[in-house]
């Protein structure tokens, strides 16, 4: 299947989804007025990927900001990935946040509390 490679914009994150490597990344900011349109192809890609996923899938979330419209779409992404986890395949989430950015750290913990996937919280100097 085709990979997704989207450049980031002032309102949407860079997206790099690689099916062969089982490596998915969102990076930058996600603050579109209506995030549904932006996340639709991402969700479709994951559904397709879920039909024959790699043994290990790693999802790197490196977001500086996201708005509440995106927060729901990001939850849906996690829910789709949760569906792939198990039965011999594994999905791991790396949640990046910048030093001192308590809000983004909490946001990661909030998802972790809702979604039964292994989360690793990673503090970095700059995203």
């Amino acid at each position: 299947m085709e990979n997704i490679n989207l450049e980031g914009t002032p309102k949407t994150p860079a997206v790099s989804f690689n099916a062969n490597e089982g490596r998915l990344e969102l990076k930058g900011r996600s603050i579109p007025e209506n995030s549904v349109e932006f996340y639709k192809p991402i969700n479709q890609w994951i559904e397709e990927y879920g039909k024959s996923p790699k043994e290990v899938t790693i999802f790197d979330v490196k977001l500086e900001y996201f708005n509440t419209s995106s927060s729901k779409c990001i939850l849906d992404v996690f829910k789709l990935l949760e569906g792939i986890n198990g039965n011999g395949t594994e999905v791991k989430v790396n949640w990046y946040f910048e030093e001192d950015d308590e809000d983004m750290e909490e946001a990661g913990e909030d998802y972790q509390a809702i979604i039964p996937l292994p989360f690793k919280m990673i503090e970095v100097e700059e995203i």
Partner: peptide, 13 residues
């Protein structure tokens, strides 16, 4: 609300 709410067609949560 994040877990149980639905997005409106405007994308508001």
């Amino acid at each position: 609300v994040l877990n149980h709410g639905q997005l409106s067609n405007k994308g508001t949560a």
